[in-house]
Design a protein around this nucleic acid. Structure first.
Lengths: 163, 163, 163, 163
DNA sequence: TTTT
DNA sequence: TTTT
């Protein structure tokens, strides 16, 4: 049940290969970044402008497995989820907030394009899953290396909990 | 034009009266927070659980004026916009990121409920607009005083720019 | 699973009390009509124009029970579902098509407004459910009596079938 | 302005080449059909089931031109519009109703896939537009040739009118 | 900070 | 048939 609606719909391209890890209870969690872009003509200069927005997307459960196996850097994807902001501690002890798009039960994921538009006939990733301890900074953040948020601690993840 | 889709749909309650300010070019910008909540039965304890998510929403242009005039603390509202993350500098010189839901051309706002469900026959705010120089820290930040993001510097706001 | 996205989001007012019936397997099906309206200034005449669109909405399962109990004529409601067109035979033997918004698993329903905005403190409908054998012609058909579509034959409705 | 929300989001494949015609005032109108499909495992038989839903989509204005030039049979597309049901007279003088997804100002269209996934390097259609008098029955309807709805008479189409 |  |  819900009082209210909290819905995000994205169509964009995946910024890097998905990162999948597994919770103690066996549930999969997959992280990706999705880029969406707008372009428009600047009224002043008359030049074509473009802006790219990066979205952190976190899949849970069955969709986490599918996303981890089939999405690749460059994949075009439709995603439907909900906004969630979590708090984490920076190395300086200060609170930081990161907003993510959560895709679980009630969400949706659709690969777009009739084939792998970015990688030809490369097979999907083998379905095995060594939990990566050191998650690299996301592609969007690599310019000047701001401190990345840690992977969320979803150890208490449970089918009861709707996230 | 856009390559990609970046869409957010929220139905929730406004956490406080709207904050409206005016850009040098006369365009209005209105900030509100919207709460959406989920509830579910915890499988372990069997107890009813609830989680509230808060969303920063920024209106531009005509919708900023309407939101500023008609929305009030407690109002139920439908909002359609897009995600945007902006960077700002904390007092410690570190980069911070804040994600907001931008509602402008291409977005939508609908007040819900047939009457003012929160304030009876209280009239809408008088339509005048002293630009508030010192924007108070947003309510969400007051519990334990994390550093709030500054109001965005949208001085260059222009109809050309799609935000 | 799905290849493709088929999503409808409506916020509007219910045109009449819900009609609930029960399938042989005990599942509920509830029909309502929802009105959405647009208004605009006609450029020619300068007059205010308005257009109302009516949507047939069919709820299944748990949401059918909730809709049948709590929605009333005039209720404001948020609905999320998918489009489905079904064929039926007119009395003249000709094929007719009716498009409906199906709300089931994967859909959502939210009553809007903080109280019963239409009926004060009228209690929700008693939760009992005599299957109505003779479903009256829908209200929309009464003006000049076009032939209404029959209630869909969902006897084969089953949790397996995603509608 | 609008009281209410009337929104449709589709991701699917185009059933045939677009049909573009021009109104007396020079505005373009383009018709396509979009297929979306669901699949699921039948609980009884255990077999994989699939159902395809066809949607009539009508573009107006600038998007009508873009759709007419770039979409082709088989194209995968994202469409955002609103539901509209129009009445027309069958040859037997009876009223018929057809529900369409209208995409105009306030709507959106996105071609999906990085290239023409269906036609290789075929160039976009030449931008000329002989109004086709005899619109063929839509692909979805060709099985047993039901009477198709006529193209809507949108001669009064005007920028004032939000359809 | 909202709301039920 | 709703609602503002």
């Amino acid at each position: 049940m819900a009082r209210g609606v909290n819905k995000v719909i994205l169509v964009g391209n995946v910024g890097g290969d998905p990162e999948t890890r597994y919770l103690p209870n066996g549930n999969a969690v997959t992280n990706i970044s999705i880029a969406t872009s707008d372009s428009w003509n600047d009224k002043q200069t008359g030049q074509r402008q473009e802006r790219t927005e990066w979205h952190r997307v976190v899949f849970f459960g069955k969709l986490a497995e599918i996303a981890g196996e089939y999405l690749r850097k460059g994949s075009q994807v439709y995603v439907e989820g909900r906004l969630q902001t979590r708090k984490w501690q920076g190395q300086d002890g200060q609170d930081r907030y990161t907003t993510e798009v959560i895709v679980d039960i009630g969400g949706q994921m659709q690969m777009l394009g009739s084939r792998n538009d970015d990688g030809g006939n490369r097979p999907p990733a083998a379905r095995q899953s060594p939990p990566r301890e050191n998650r690299p900074a996301p592609a969007a953040a690599q310019r000047q290396a701001p401190e990345p948020p840690p992977a969320a601690d979803y150890d208490s993840f449970d089918d009861d909990i709707p996230f």
